[in-house]
């Protein structure tokens, strides 16, 4: 890449946390409402999101464009890195390698996941009321369920370890002790957010979401 790569890299780091990190947490909480509140709770969350003002522009500027830049520039960064954990099997080097591996996994998964959900919604193949049912159909397939578990763990690790790297790259955690403390906090974030996603995946597999769309459609009319 020609020219100055300092700004794009800085932007990449920032976008990963704000807004994409915030979106990931929002996504985890929305999904978790399916575990906590069942079909009703999940619908309430979706209604809340759908009712936000300028929802199209929020999606465009807070989710789609940042993901596109972060993903494409991230692939370029991953391409520029060697993986040398064989020679230097230190924990931070493993985190470095995993950050790139999970980034690529997340990129591929997000492309497929957006096609499978958001684009199907836009094409009219499913509706907001049927989303829970739609997810039930997707994760009922054991192979797809496994892929979802791997992808969710990858995305969450990438997010949590990305916060750690963000704090270093912006000069917030400088010394080894600060970096050690932030690493522990970030691994805590990884566990919490991963559990939220995993519980919601389990919830979507439940019977409640099987015929739920039909039920809502019936009561709604």
């Amino acid at each position: 890449m020609k020219g100055n790569s300092y700004l794009p890299r800085k932007l990449h780091s920032l976008l990963g946390v704000i807004p994409l990190g915030l979106f990931l947490i929002e996504h985890a909480l929305t999904n978790y409402s399916a575990f906590e509140g069942g079909q009703e709770g999940f619908m309430a969350s979706i209604d809340f999101l759908h009712g936000m003002p300028l929802v199209f522009f929020l999606e465009l500027f807070v989710i789609w464009l940042p993901i596109l830049f972060h993903g494409v520039y991230g692939l370029y960064m991953a391409f520029q890195s060697d993986l040398n954990v064989g020679r230097f099997s230190y924990s931070r080097n493993w985190a470095f390698a995993l950050q790139r591996i999970t980034g690529v996994i997340t990129f591929i998964f997000v492309a497929w996941h957006v096609y499978d959900t958001r684009i199907q919604l836009a094409l009219g193949n499913t509706t907001y009321e049927e989303l829970g049912n739609h997810m039930h159909d997707i994760v009922s397939n054991p192979a797809v369920f496994t892929i979802y578990i791997i992808a969710v763990l990858a995305a969450t690790f990438h997010f949590a370890n990305g916060i750690w790297a963000f704090l270093v790259s912006w000069g917030i955690t400088i010394g080894p002790r600060a970096q050690k403390v932030s690493a522990n906090i970030c691994m805590g974030i990884f566990v919490i957010v991963a559990v939220l996603f995993l519980l919601s995946l389990v919830a979507f597999r439940g019977d409640e979401f099987e015929g739920a769309a039909a039920l809502v459609a019936a009561t709604g009319r």
């Binding site: 020609k2 300092y6 520029q80 040398n84 230190y90 985190a95 470095f96 950050q99 750690w164 270093v168």
Partner: peptide, 19 residues
């Protein structure tokens, strides 16, 4: 350091400080 090939190239693998 803020030019191409500068500090942004660091990926925080931290092998350097170990080596």
């Amino acid at each position: 350091l803020m030019e191409d090939g500068g500090i942004e190239g660091c990926g925080n693998s931290q092998n350097c400080v170990r080596s």
